[in-house]
């Protein structure tokens, strides 16, 4: 019997290392394929945008959340969307935004993408489930 897998959207609103939300979201997402499902979109909002900080450098004996998100993108081909309004005011800028605001280096890199809240709504409409991970 082959069951049709579901596509999931995750909204992550917790800052990495200070709250449980991103750890829980990752563990949930990593467990989906074993059940025949996949995560299609992760949307980072509120303090969750810090999950995309490209210079994140945790101690070696702690989970590297940025690497885990990248691995998730590779294995499940999910998009990693970051709310541009939440991100830019918190100092997370891709190359274009860094240039626009006169900063020498981007602090957010692919596979993370800056997008608007409309993309969160699209994900809610398009995918089978949306789960919020928030403090």
């Amino acid at each position: 019997m082959v069951s049709q897998g579901l596509t999931y959207a995750l909204m992550v609103q917790g800052a990495p290392y200070s709250q449980q939300a991103s750890h829980s979201a990752l563990r949930f997402a990593e467990a989906l394929p074993a059940q025949g499902h996949r995560v299609a979109t992760v949307f980072f909002y509120h303090d969750g945008v810090y999950n995309a900080a490209s210079m994140m450098s945790p101690p070696r004996d702690e989970p590297h959340l940025l690497e885990r998100w990248r691995a998730l993108h590779q294995t499940q081909h999910c998009e990693l969307l970051v709310c541009v309004a939440s991100a830019v005011r918190r100092g997370l800028l891709d190359e274009g935004e860094a240039r626009r605001h006169g900063h020498p280096h981007p602090t957010l890199e692919a596979p993370f993408e800056l997008t608007g809240l409309g993309q969160l709504m699209q994900a809610a409409f398009q995918h089978d489930r949306l789960i919020t991970f928030a403090p």
């Binding site: 909002y45 509120h46 309004a85 939440s86 608007g116 809240l117 409309g118 969160l120 709504m121 409409f125």
Partner: peptide
């Protein structure tokens, strides 16, 4: 905190998209 504001902004975008 900015929770209420950011929640309402998400709701407003939904409204702007006709939902």
């Amino acid at each position: 905190t900015s929770w209420v504001r950011e929640g309402l902004e998400a709701a407003l975008v939904g409204a702007a998209l006709g939902q």
